[in-house]
Amino acid sequence: TETYKYDDKREAEKAAEEFRRRGITVTVEERNGTWVLESK
């Protein structure tokens, strides 16, 4: 599991889209005002 942090929800979702395009499952969730993207 890799974790990436973003200040902006849009950025996180854009990154998530890129991962999914490569066939990687990711989750995006907000933690304490930071958007956390996790690849499984």
Rank of each mutant, 00 (worst) to 15 (best):
E29L: 13
E38M: 14
T3R: 11
K40N: 11
T34W: 15
T27P: 00
L37K: 00
N32P: 01
K5E: 13
T3Q: 11
Y6K: 01
R10V: 13
T27K: 08
G23R: 01
A15I: 05
A16Y: 04
E17V: 05
K5S: 13
S39I: 15
Y6Q: 01
A15T: 04
T34L: 14
L37P: 00
E11H: 07
V26N: 00
Y4G: 06
E29F: 14
W35E: 01
A16P: 00
R10W: 12
D8C: 04
D7S: 14
V36F: 12
K14S: 09
V36T: 05
G33N: 04
E38V: 15
S39R: 13
E13L: 12
K5V: 15
K40F: 14
E29S: 12
K40E: 09
E38Q: 11
Y6E: 01
V36K: 02
N32Q: 06
V36W: 12
R22T: 05
T1E: 09
E17Q: 08
T25S: 13
K5N: 09
V36I: 13
D7N: 14
V36A: 03
A12W: 01
R10T: 11
I24T: 04
R21K: 13
K9P: 10
E2R: 10
D8A: 04
K9D: 02
K40A: 12
E38R: 11
Y4V: 09
G33F: 02
R21E: 07
E30F: 15
E29A: 11
T25Y: 15
F19D: 01
I24P: 00
A16S: 03
R31N: 07
V36E: 04
E13R: 03
V36S: 03
R31G: 03
V36L: 06
T25R: 10
E17L: 08
E18R: 08
W35N: 01
T1I: 13
E11R: 05
E11K: 09
K14Y: 06
E13F: 10
Y4I: 10
T25K: 11
G33Q: 03
E18P: 01
R22E: 07
A12Q: 01
A12E: 00
K14Q: 10
Y6P: 01
K9F: 10
K9M: 07
R20C: 08
D7P: 10
K40S: 13
K5A: 12
E30A: 06
E17F: 04
A16F: 03
E18F: 07
R20H: 07
E17H: 04
E2K: 12
D7M: 13
Y6A: 02
K9R: 12
Y6N: 00
V28D: 00
V26I: 07
N32K: 04
A12I: 01
E2S: 12
N32T: 03
V26D: 00
A12G: 01
D7Y: 14
W35V: 01
D7A: 14
T3W: 12
L37Q: 00
T34D: 05
K5H: 14
K40W: 14
Y4H: 10
T3D: 06
T34E: 12
E13P: 00
R21N: 10
K9Y: 11
K14P: 00
D8K: 06
R22F: 07
S39V: 15
K40I: 14
E2G: 12
T25M: 14
R21F: 06
T27S: 09
K5R: 13
L37Y: 01
